[in-house]
Design a protein around this nucleic acid. Structure first.
Length: 293
DNA sequence: CCATTATCCTGTTAGC
DNA sequence: TGCTAACAGGATAATG
């Protein structure tokens, strides 16, 4: 699925091939792909027609294009979304949801999404942390790759929370861009267990896990750039580059790259956590809970 | 207000 | 072989 590095690759593709062009028309092939748009597909089309794309931007996994009237076209790829720049005569993809045609009559911008967890919305912008961003992005924290990311502020926010560390890592309002895969990889690198209470972590602990998140995303981005064409993001390319880079995610029963102990998999919030039982000690409270239930 | 859970979706895979 | 069930998971509305 698209993680932050893929979204960044897509952003660059949109920047290179769609920015500067003016929208002629919008065709919605699946209503669910128009996300939380008052007025639905007709409103999306009305807001985009005649607008020129000014800049492609990103915060966490949210991707948007600034428009020439101060509004924005917001996109989220969800689980399976793709934004493709395609020749107009290329046959429609099986899961094509939205098509943008441009006045220059060249290539089209296509939103393709198998599971329709993602979508597009035309929205107003709002001031957030000294920057104008789409309204739905206003409450989202900066991601670790953002030049304006404030590590010490994030450390403080984590320690003020009353929750478990992995829940905090997945909370996009604190720090954005970290999904299930990066959370597990970051926890393993920092040698911290997902169930550690955030309020009892030391500042260095939180610094370490967030620094690890920055590292693993930077490394993935470097590899993502080699595996994905800016024009065509192939879903089958996902396993290709992630499989080698990941230490614990999806590696149940395989040896920990650091100590050789078999990686474990446990249920977590309707999904999975992968971790090393030697490197990442289970906190006492969680251990007792497990024993008593 | 804050933290947690249910919900959306469909192609692939595992199991019987 | 064919069917069913589990699984993948980000964001948010709803609930506690």
């Amino acid at each position: 699925m698209p993680e932050l590095p893929e979204v960044e690759v897509v952003r660059r593709g949109v920047s290179d091939h769609a920015v500067g062009r003016t929208v002629a028309s919008v065709e919605v092939l699946h209503p669910r792909a128009v996300r939380r748009q008052a007025g639905g597909a007709p409103e999306l089309g009305a807001r985009l027609a005649g607008r020129t794309l000014v800049a492609a931007r990103r915060r966490g996994k949210f991707l948007w294009v600034d428009l020439d009237d101060g509004t924005a076209l917001l996109a989220h790829l969800g689980m399976s979304g793709q934004l493709l720049v395609q020749p107009a005569d290329r046959p429609d993809e099986k899961h094509l949801r939205v098509r943008l045609r441009f006045r220059d009559d060249g290539s089209e911008l296509r939103f393709v999404d198998q599971r329709t967890f993602g979508g597009l919305t035309a929205v107003d912008t709002v001031e957030s942390d000294g920057e104008r961003v789409p309204l739905p992005v206003g409450h989202i924290g900066r991601d670790p790759l953002d030049p304006a990311f404030d590590l010490e502020a994030a450390v403080g926010a984590y320690r003020r929370r009353r929750t478990e560390l992995k829940r905090a890592l997945l909370d996009q309002t604190l720090v954005s861009g970290i999904g299930n895969i990066y959370a597990d990889e970051s926890l393993w690198r920092a040698r911290l267990h997902s169930l550690r209470p955030t309020a009892r972590l030391t500042r260095p602990d939180v610094r370490n896990v967030l620094t690890a998140a920055h590292e693993v995303m930077t490394e993935s981005l470097a590899q993502g750039g080699t595996s994905f064409d800016a024009l065509y993001v192939d879903v089958h390319g996902d396993s290709g580059y992630f499989a080698r880079a990941l230490a614990v995610y999806g590696r149940e029963d395989e040896p920990c790259p650091r100590c050789g102990t078999a990686i474990r998999r446990t249920a977590f919030m309707n999904r999975s956590s992968f971790w090393c039982p030697t490197c990442q000690k289970v906190p006492r409270a969680a251990r007792e809970q497990k024993g008593s239930s």
